[in-house]
Each structure stands twice: as structure tokens, then as C-alpha cells.
Design a protein around this nucleic acid. Structure first.
Lengths: 204, 204
DNA sequence: CAGACATTTGACCAACTGGTCAAACTCACG
DNA sequence: CGTGAGTTTGACCAGTTGGTCAAATGTCTG
């Protein structure tokens, strides 16, 4: 393992290559389905060489997860409590949907992990994510109290956005197989906008 | 492997035990994460004994999938084109939600498989399921043409129901972690009813 | 209860996998 | 250009895993 001084040029390049390769391999095969050799080959390294940069398969996976989690949750942090409620929510939905389109591997990586009980993520889920979700729920409730969006269960509202947007990345094979033409995202944006507009428009 | 005459009492019992054990193990660890030994132990058999009933790990998995797929799609077949549109759709949503609650292992089994590209299911997806989905879409479109529910993209409507209901089973760990109290299904039924009622009530 | 057939098992194997290690090689820098 | 640190590699190892096989045991039927 490299010393923990400032990383050399080679260290930076290889570390980046490894994480990129790991994302590709882990997201396609899950943790147990992925082999260190696969990742090494995908990163253009030999197995022992890879293990010179990360002490174990587990360490690669953990590093990858924690590196991605922040990015993954960014759209949630961008919700502005001062903005127009409907616009803010629709923009959040759009950001999440775009993320599914642009980063399907990241989405599937998390999906894989969570479906199997998230043994390596429970920690973050119940701390970092928890705080973010609580804050978002407060924002939603304030908007509902002010009568600016219709009243629904705020936490299920958030779950529904995650569910509906990530579905297009996580279950892409299924969606694509059943869509004609087979673009999974064709019409998704309009559909979701309609859905949330109708659900959340305050009743007169 | 047993001869293919009419199965004996022991064959019936063991085959059932194996499939039950396989559901438990595969849904928790995915195909590659599950070992034949785990399944055998969970079924109360030795490994060679298990392999006397199924020729390979792959065969167990395939048998399990095809046995479950029919059950899994039953709720879809129960949609009645002659019934009241809103009631039919809400009832379908309720059935699917109940299924997530009662059969989370089955849900996760399929989720696992599809997230990883459904290498062992593409066949069924693009034939059996395809037909069912096309038929359902026709029903939805007829209802929309008759002005009995609001117009939305019918296929995305169906995807949304799958996504929202199965989310509670597939991502149970996440949902549970973020719910207080930690019953993932608490309030889900009411939320989904509200959602689909508001989205699909015809606009005056 | 004898024989035929069904079921179960222990021992075994080859392939794979995560990980180690000492030796060899490469690079940056004085 | 030499030297020490950083990097890479082939050989290797122990544990796991899917699967085989012949022999032993159990079960059913005439």
C-alpha cells in the first residue's frame, strides 16, 4: 500500500482507474459476484498491483461507496425551502431522473447493495441520510402547512420520488424490454411531471 | 436425478423444501452470492443429496424463477376491463402492495435478477410479460378514451405502480431505516391511494 | 422378506478466489 | 547517472465452491 504522503502522479491515475473499474464491475455483478481479477483487468492492472493500492476487495467497495454517496445525494441538498414549492419539487424530480439517465451504474450499485440488506451501508443510511431526509421532510411539511402544496405523507412523497426515478436506471432491462421504442426514458419526464403536478396541486 | 415418473412422496417433500430454501437464500444473497451448501443446509439436506434432485445450482434457480413468475404476475391478470376503472386500478395497486408485504423474498429475488441485467429472464420478459403488458395497456387506453380516467402515458402508469409498490419490499432496509416507527408499510396504502386518485381523476 | 428401485452419504476433485511475498523493475531527484 | 523510494510482477497459498461417484442405506411392492 502506498505511503500516505501526497499521492504521486501514478497513484492518482491508478486509484482513479481502479474506482472507475470497480464501479463498472460491482454495479454489474454485485459485491459477491465481482472478482478482484475482473476489477484489476478492467483497470489495466494485475491483481497484486491492484492490491498494492487497496488492501482488500472490501476496501475498494467501501471507498467507492463513500466516494459516490455524496454526489448521489446532492440533488436532495439543492431543494430550496425559499423557492416555489411545486417548482422545487418538480426540479428535484427532474434532477433525479437525469441522474438515473447519466449515472445508471451508480444507481444500480446502491440498488444492489440495498436489496441485499445494505450490510455495508446501514451506518451511513441511519446517520447522514437520516439527517438529510428529516430536513427535507420539514421543508415539505412547512409547504403543506402553508397550503402551497396538497397534503400527503411527506416521507412517502420522498420515497415515491426515489422509487419512480431510480426505477428507470435500476430496472432498465425490464423497462427497455417493454418499451416501444426501447428508450426507457422516453416520456418519463412528462409522465412524472404530470403525476406530481396533479398529486400536489392544492385542492380548492 | 430422480426418474421422471410420477414423483414419490419423498421427491415431492424434498423438491418443495429445496425451492423454499432456495428462495430464502437466493433472495438474500443473489445468484452468485448463494452457495449450494447454504441451500442444502437450509433445506435439511446434504449437498450431494440436493444435487440428486436438481442437476446444478443454475437449474435450481431457473426452476424457482419459472415457478414464481406466474404467481407474481397474477394480480395483473385480475384487472377487469369491465369494472370501474378507478376502482380496478386502486385494487391492483393494493394487491401489489399486499404482495410486497407478504412476499418480500420473491420481490427481491426478481429485483436482484433484473438489476443485474436479468441474464436468466430476458426470455420470459420479452414474451410472456410482454403480452400481458400490451393487454393491460389496451385496457388503460380504452378507459382513457372513454374519459373515465385522466389521460397519462399508459405504460409509464403501469411502471409507476410496479416501482412504487415493489419499492417497499426491495428497498425495505432503506425504507425501514428512515421510517419512524420503522414499519415500512405504515401509511403506504393511503399514500398510494391518494396519489393514484389525484393523478387519474378525470379533469372537469 | 427378497429384490428392485429410490435416496443418502463421505470422500474426492478441479476450478476459482482473495490475498501474500520476495524479487524485479521504474521513476524522480540530487 | 546513481540511489532510494515507489511500482509491478510471477509464483504461490489456503479456503471455498460447484459438482462427481461409488458405495451404503432406506423404502416399496410382489
Amino acid at each position: 500500500m502506498p505511503k500516505d504522503r501526497s499521492p504521486t502522479r501514478i497513484q492518482k491515475r491508478n486509484r482513479a482507474n481502479i474506482l472507475e473499474a470497480a464501479l463498472e464491475v460491482f454495479s454489474q455483478n454485485g459485491f459477491r459476484g465481482a472478482t478482484v481479477d475482473q476489477i484489476a483487468t478492467a483497470a489495466g492492472l494485475s491483481k497484486p498491483n491492484l492490491l498494492y493500492y487497496f488492501p482488500s476487495k472490501d476496501a475498494i467497495f467501501t471507498a467507492l461507496l463513500s466516494e459516490l454517496l455524496d454526489t448521489w445525494l446532492d440533488p436532495l441538498r439543492e431543494i430550496n425551502p425559499e423557492g416555489d414549492p411545486m417548482a422545487e419539487i418538480l426540479a428535484y424530480v427532474e434532477r433525479k431522473l437525469q441522474m438515473s439517465k447519466d449515472m445508471p451504474r451508480e444507481s444500480r450499485l446502491f440498488a444492489n447493495e440495498i436489496v441485499q440488506g445494505a450490510p455495508r451501508m446501514i451506518e451511513e443510511l441511519s446517520t447522514d441520510l437520516r439527517v438529510l431526509v428529516d430536513a427535507t421532510e420539514t421543508i415539505f411539511v412547512d409547504w403543506m402547512d402553508a397550503g402551497r402544496i396538497a397534503r400527503v405523507h411527506p416521507r412517502h412523497l420522498l420515497f415515491s420520488i426515489w422509487s419512480l426515478t431510480q426505477h428507470y436506471a435500476d430496472f432498465e432491462v425490464q423497462v427497455r424490454t417493454l418499451m416501444t421504442p426501447d428508450d426507457p426514458f422516453d416520456g418519463a419526464s412528462e409522465f412524472l411531471e404530470t403525476l406530481y403536478r396533479r398529486m400536489l396541486t392544492p385542492q380548492s
